[in-house]
Design a protein around this nucleic acid. Sequence first.
DNA 1: CGTGTAAGGAATTCTGACACG
DNA 2: CGTGTAAGGAATTCTGACACG
Lengths: 111, 111
Amino acid sequence: MESDSSYKNKKVINIGIVRELTGLSERQIRYYEERKLIFPDRTPGGSRKYSFADVELLVEIANKIEDGVQTHEIRKEMLRSQKKQNPEEIRRKMIQGQLNAQFGFRKGPYS
Amino acid sequence: MESDSSYKNKKVINIGIVRELTGLSERQIRYYEERKLIFPDRTPGGSRKYSFADVELLVEIANKIEDGVQTHEIRKEMLRSQKKQNPEEIRRKMIQGQLNAQFGFRKGPYS
DNA sequence: CGTGTAAGGAATTCTGACACG
DNA sequence: CGTGTAAGGAATTCTGACACG
């Protein structure tokens, strides 16, 4: 049992696909990482790998920047909402996520 | 409203990651495609893109082959179970999948 | 500050073929 | 039949820098 086996949080997506999914440029995506707003995994060779959750976060970041919020402010917001996380609530959400991943859609082979 | 917006069915994963996720070789993964058991998308440049559902299907395929079932037989099984699909049931599952994708885990920004 | 771009290199993936059996 | 491998090429991604402002 891993700490997170949900599809949504598995880092498996290349930057090229993230570009398509978000409409952002690769330059923007890498810059937001430089500003510590997003944290992709890396392959042994150095290629970035993102999750669907990362993709959604990137869209939210881009929206705020369009509204004139600076990356430094966005980072502070994210740190604040992190601290608000109640441990028990986090646990509940993770379990719910796993249930959705296992039983939310498919029933069995080819179904 | 697309016909499928679930994370599970979005084709966004490179063959290298599929190799890691399944433990199969790239040769095997490509061969199962040649035998019409799996149908990745392609980027404009020709790179294969798989979904999480594809990854799970690949594991099932590999298990059957280990059991001595030939690709041709596996293909027939898949075609049979496809026909069993009731249209109303498919519709229900797709809606459920969309609900899970939107409300099953996250509540809002950074939560 | 946030983003575009050209540059050069490295990692990744592709196809078709030969091999074994 | 299913899979490994070496071969050569093409697509993809990487970093650091210059530019604008």
